Computed example of a mutant assay.
Amino acid sequence: MTRRFRVLLLLLCLCQVRGGLADSLPVVRLATLEWPPYNSETLPQGGVNTALVRAAFAAAGYRLEVETFPWSAAVYKGLHDARFDGYFPEYLSPAARRDCYLSERAGESPVVLAKRKDSQYPPVRGVSDLARYRIGVVQGYNNTEAFDANVARGVQKVDVALSDEQNLDKLAHGRVALIIIDRNVMAWLLANSPRLRGQEALLDSLRPPLQVQGLYICFKRDAHGQTLADSFSGGLRHVDVDDFTRRYLSALHK
C-alpha cells in the first residue's frame, strides 16, 4: 500500500468520526443520486466518487455531508435549496457551465453505447451515425454535448427511461436498439441488480467509448460556491484521482 493511499484512508476514517475535531469542521452539504459504483448509500463511503470527494474535502479542512435523491431532484436541490451547497457528479455541459461553479475533475465516466450481443451495428464514427436509431437515455441525464445537441434539434430520436436499470432492462427485452450508459454503472448493475439477473449474458457495450466524461461538483454560482470550489481544488491536489478510483473499484470487486 502506498503512503499516499494510506493518507487517503486515514482521511476517510477521520471523516467518519462523530465528535471531536471532525464535528468542529465546517460542513459542505451536497445532493447526489443513487448511481453505483460512483454514488450509493449501500457502498463503503458512499461509492467511489463520494469517497474521493470526501477525501479531498477532508484534506481541505471540511466535513462532507451528502443526501441522495432522484437525479432531477438532486440537481434542483443543489442549485436552489438553501440547505445545499451544490450537487454532484456532473458532466461538462452548456447548462453546467452556465449554472455552476464547477470543481476540477474528480474522476471520469466512460460513456458507452450498449446493445444486445445478438445485434450487429456498423462502427460508430460519431453521433451523426446514431441518427438512424432510437437510443435509450435516462431522463435528466447529460450524455455528450454533440448527442444532446442533436436531440435538442430533433435530429436524434430517443426513448426515455427513469433509470439506468430500466434502460438496461428495456434493451435486454428488445424494446430499444441501443442505450447510452456509463460502462462501470452497466457492469455494476448487471452484476448486482435482482431485476437484471441473467441479463449479463445478453448485453455488451461497443468500444471505444462514445466519450470519456469528467466528473465534477456543481457548486452554487455565488461567492460561497466559488470559495468551496477553490477549497476543493486545493484538497484535490492531495488525492491521486485515477489511483484512488482504481484501488477503490479493485477492492470493491474482490
Rank of each mutant, 00 (worst) to 15 (best):
E104F: 03
A106E: 07
D85L: 12
L10H: 13
E200P: 04
F147V: 09
D81Q: 09
S128T: 09
H238W: 10
P122H: 10
G136M: 03
I181K: 00
A96Y: 04
K115R: 15
R134K: 09
L10T: 14
G136V: 05
L202H: 01
L11H: 07
L210M: 12
R125Q: 05
P94V: 02
P37D: 12
L79Q: 07
T227I: 12
D169T: 04
G154N: 14
R197D: 08
L203N: 01
A51I: 00
L130H: 11
R153W: 13
L14H: 07
A201S: 11
V127G: 02
P26M: 07
A73F: 06
V241S: 09
L249V: 03
A74Q: 06
A60M: 13
S205G: 06
L202P: 00
C100W: 01
D243C: 04
D222E: 13
P26Y: 03
L168M: 09
V17N: 05
R237W: 08
G234Q: 14
T227M: 14
R105W: 09
T68C: 04
D182F: 02
V151E: 12
H253A: 15
R3D: 14
R221F: 06
L236A: 07
D159V: 06
F88N: 01
G61Y: 06
S119R: 15
Y248N: 09
R175E: 04
R247T: 13
I180S: 05
A152C: 11
R153V: 11
V212P: 13
A106G: 12
R3C: 10
G214K: 14
L8H: 02
E165Q: 12
C100V: 02
S24Q: 11
V160T: 11
W188A: 13
L162S: 15
E104D: 14
S250E: 15
P208I: 02
Q120C: 05
A31H: 08
R105T: 12
D222P: 06
W71R: 05
A177G: 04
S40L: 01
P122Y: 10
Q156V: 03
V176D: 01
A82H: 15
I180R: 02
L79E: 09
L43H: 01
G61K: 05
V138I: 12
G47S: 05
G126D: 13
V48H: 00
K220M: 03
V112I: 06
Q166T: 04
R175P: 01
S128M: 10
R195N: 09
S109H: 14
A74K: 07
A51C: 04
V212Q: 07
Q139L: 15
R221H: 06
P36G: 10
Y216R: 05
R237Q: 14
G198V: 00
D169I: 03
E165V: 07
L43A: 03
L52G: 01
L228F: 00
E65G: 06
K220V: 07
Y133A: 08
E65C: 07
P94M: 03
T144E: 13
S231Y: 07
L203A: 03
F244D: 11
D230N: 14
Y101W: 13
E145Y: 00
Y133I: 01
S24Y: 05
S109Q: 13
F244H: 08
P94K: 04
F88P: 02
T2A: 08
L43T: 02
Q120V: 11
L252A: 15
T227K: 15
V112N: 03
P70R: 02
E200F: 05
W35A: 07
